[in-house]
Amino acid sequence: MSRIENAFKNGKAFIVFLTGGDPSLEKSEEFILEAEKAGADLIEIGVPFSDPIAEGEVIQAANIRALTNGTTMHDLFELAWKVRQKSEIPLVFLTYLNPVHHYGYGKFFAKCNEVGVDGIIIPDLPFEEQRELKTEAEHYGVNLISLIAPTSKERIEKIAKEGKGFLYIVSSMGVTGVRSEIDTDISAIVNAAKAVSKTPCAVGFGINTPEQAAKFAAIADGVIVGSAIVRIIAEHGENASKHIYEYVKQMKEAITR
């Protein structure tokens, strides 16, 4: 069983996103391990990019902080490797396509394999363009994780059928960021995916309260929280560990109830 499959085997998965290198690589490592201790089942490490078109203001700001610190792809591989020395928690990179293209697809996935990055999420790589790097990802055993949006409709079937790792169900229109209300019919999307695929479904975009997490965990196999975590890091900086621990613990409890 792969590490990503492991994340979904014991009940609902709680997935934590943070931007790598915000506020520093050392702190990212610490926060990841702290989140794991609090019950996180999988970690998405955001690769900072100059122009993250799918991100709202909170994660945009984290990207700028990480880039200002000089964070590079090389640093993030090192971060993943360091975490991997201490933990078996599944690690997934969330990155825009250009930095991967620039690094070189073969070289990138070889490195993922070497340091223990289990999957990759690319917000600007829709299903039709996955052939761009699918061969290399599969060759090195890295899951290329697909996104399904509220507007996907009849596209859900083909995306779900080919889904690897987990299916990232985008809860809302627009960009990342906390929302007070999410009115998309998530269960219809999850049902459509489940009808053709055994790949677990995790819901993300906008989720920040335990109530929202519990609601979506009841429908899907896991929930993804990004902006709320990044906001804690923005607020508490280097001292964010205990706040992340408390938040993740509370959220994990909400979805396990």
């Binding site: 917000p123 600007d124 829709p126 299903f127 039709e128 996104l147 996907s152 409709k153």
Partner: peptide, 12 residues
Amino acid sequence: GGQYIPETLMNE
């Protein structure tokens, strides 16, 4: 060329 955009926009 191509269509390297978020899934949300693909149908559109």
